[in-house]
């Protein structure tokens, strides 16, 4: 079901790129969400893959 919807959405995006996207408005109450501070960032990749060196 979700896959069908995915296709539909992809098509609608292809037809109209009007959906604006400037920031990630996650839309949660920030006080209740853990927001990473800059010192928590590392220089490593964060994904379940390992990238080769640049």
């Amino acid at each position: 079901m979700f896959k069908l919807k995915k296709v539909a959405v992809s098509l609608s995006i292809a037809l109209s790129l009007a959906v604006s996207f400037s920031t990630f408005d996650v839309g949660f109450n920030e006080k209740s969400v853990h927001i990473a501070s800059p010192d928590e960032f590392s220089t490593m990749d964060r994904d379940r893959i390992v990238k080769p060196p640049a």
Binding site: F2, F28, H34, I35, A36, R46
Partner: peptide, 26 residues
């Protein structure tokens, strides 16, 4: 919703974020 997804967005781990969103939607 509360922790993992916002954290992945913060880390710019978009591929993981999409996968988690799909689980949430399902």
């Amino acid at each position: 919703v509360k922790y993992l997804y916002p954290h992945l967005i913060k880390l710019q781990s978009f591929s993981d974020a999409l996968e988690v969103l799909e689980k949430i939607i399902d």
